[in-house]
Every structure is written in structure tokens, then in C-alpha cells.
């Protein structure tokens, strides 16, 4: 579904990604771990086409299409979703209104009929129920005055409504208490499906206690330096990232 080859990207002229390779198939859940500053958030921003992230080399292919050719909203309409690490507040814009505008833009793109407000509200209520989220989120402005946990839940809720093909969750676990973490994890697990791929970007193992990934990758200095099964994440949790610098990379690479 997603194939990234030799990706180099710069921010403000500084190279952050330096030859990253990654392949994610439909139905798979991949975790990307790495120390701060390794380029984890940059990856999500490059895939979704944020301004200021310049790709200098390499390719990103998504469902056979060159993703880098598309505008951010075209990528979204093609089914690429980013759960933001810091969801943005948009004062005065109602959350429900916003989400309906997004869903209808995507439906229109796919040649489907737009949903009227009654049908949309029905859909939204279903999703809320499944995710055990209260409907007070609906009446407020997009993320405005939301607590950290509410913002992250709102991201998962949007993902549930928009039903993307490829979801990238950028540090969705950061700043969450255990209850919020469970809600988020449960939401993600419910959305796992054979035709949907997910990439979890995280610093800690703790989200992976609740979501079992198919593959775990370690990102350091802008490249994937190690890949393995769920066991790799546990080792990172126990030993930190430092051992990677001491020739551990090869060791793991061989192990996997």
C-alpha cells in the first residue's frame, strides 16, 4: 500500500530524513520508534504534504500513485490520514461542521453522494458510541479549549468517521493518562482491518502494550536502522536507545 524508497527531506535547509526506506502492506500495523529528533514527526508531515518539508531525493508511492505529486487535500481524499501530535485549535469553527465538510469533500472526490446533516449525525453518533466518547465534543469548536486527552480522542474520532486507507498516528500516546490511552488504543484496534494500513509513530513502548504491531522499526538519524517484530519494541523499552549506537544495530538486524 505504501512504499517509501531512499527518502531524503529537509526542513529549513537542514536534512532530517536521510535515505529512509519503508514498506507497509494493507492490513498491517507498523510502529516507528526512535529517540527525540530522529525524524519521526517529519515522516508524517512529508507523507501528508506539509509546507516547509522539502523532499530532495527518493519516492513515496501509495496505492501505485506518486504521493509527492498530490496536494495535501488530494492526499487526504485518497485516504491518507494523519492524527496530529498537536491537534490544532480552530476557534469559532464547530467540530461537527468541520468534520462534515471534510467527509463530504472526500466523498465528493470519490464520486459518492454528499451526506446531509441528518445522515451525517446518525453516522457520527454510531462512531461515538463505538468509541465510548461523549457527544459533548460535537458542540464545541475544533479542539478549542480541549484538554490534551480530548484532543487525541477527537483525532481518533475523526479517523473513525473518515475511515482512511492509511492512517499515521503521530505520538498519539504522548501526554495521555492510562484511561485516555486505553480509549485511544481501543479506537485504533477497532479500526484495524484487512484493507487499512496504520503507522504508529511513538517514543515509548506503552502504546504498543495495547496495540500489537505487525512490525516495529527504529528510526535514528533520519533512517530506519533496525526492524523487527514486537519483541524489538520491548527491548527498546528495557534498554533505551543508547545500545543502538554501540553496534547493536547489526545485532538486531541479524536477529530479525
Amino acid at each position: 500500500m505504501l512504499k517509501i524508497s531512499n527518502l531524503h527531506a529537509t526542513v529549513d535547509g537542514k536534512e532530517i530524513l536521510r535515505g529512509l526506506d519503508l514498506e507497509v502492506g494493507a492490513g498491517e500495523v507498523h510502529a516507528i520508534m526512535g529517540p527525540n529528533g530522529s525524524g519521526k514527526s517529519t515522516l508524517g508531515n512529508v507523507i501528508t504534504g506539509r509546507e516547509g518539508y522539502e523532499v530532495t531525493e527518493g519516492s513515496v508511492t501509495y496505492q501505485g500513485k506518486d504521493l509527492l505529486e498530490l496536494s495535501p487535500e488530494e492526499r487526504a481524499c485518497e485516504g491518507v490520514f494523519l492524527a496530529f501530535q498537536y491537534p490544532v485549535e480552530i476557534p469559532g469553527v464547530n467540530n461537527t461542521y468541520f468534520l462534515r465538510a471534510a467527509l463530504n469533500a472526500q466523498r465528493k472526490h470519490r464520486g459518492e453522494e454528499e451526506l446531509d446533516s441528518v445522515a451525517f449525525l446518525k453516522l457520527v453518533r454510531e462512531k461515538l458510541e463505538v468509541l465510548h466518547i461523549g457527544d459533548e465534543l460535537l458542540h464545541r469548536a475544533v479542539n478549542e479549549g480541549f484538554s490534551g486527552g480530548e484532543k487525541k480522542r477527537n483525532e481518533i474520532f475523526q479517523m473513525a468517521v473518515l475511515e482512511p486507507r492509511l492512517a499515521i498516528l503521530d505520538e498519539t500516546d504522548s501526554g495521555l493518562d492510562i484511561d485516555a490511552l486505553r480509549t485511544v488504543a481501543e479506537g485504533v484496534n477497532r479500526l484495524r482491518s484487512p484493507d487499512r494500513a496504520m503507522v504508529l509513530v511513538t517514543h515509548y513502548q506503552r502504546l504498543l502494550d495495547h496495540i500489537e504491531p505487525d512490525r516495529v522499526h527504529v528510526l535514528a538519524n533520519g533512517r530506519i536502522v533496525a526492524s523487527g517484530g514486537p519483541g524489538l519494541a520491548r527491548r527498546l523499552e528495557e534498554e533505551g536507545y543508547a545500545w543502538l549506537d554501540e553496534g547493536g544495530i547489526a545485532e538486531v538486524a541479524e536477529a530479525s
Binding site: G49, E73, R75, A76, V88, G92, V93, A101, V142, L162
Partner: peptide, 27 residues
């Protein structure tokens, strides 16, 4: 810019995103 990108990432076109944000600003 981050508000605009947030809207774009959800599939909303740029002009719609701008009027949405401006409308919110004037609420």
C-alpha cells in the same frame, strides 16, 4: 498555517478552508 494544513489534511480544499477559518474568526 497550521490551521490551514489541519483542514487540508482532512481533505478540505484551500478556499473552503480559508473561508471556514475566517468564518470562525468572525463568529
Amino acid at each position: 498555517e497550521d490551521q490551514l494544513f489541519y483542514c487540508l489534511q482532512r481533505g478540505i480544499g484551500e478556499e473552503d478552508a480559508v473561508s471556514m477559518i475566517v468564518d470562525g474568526f468572525c463568529k
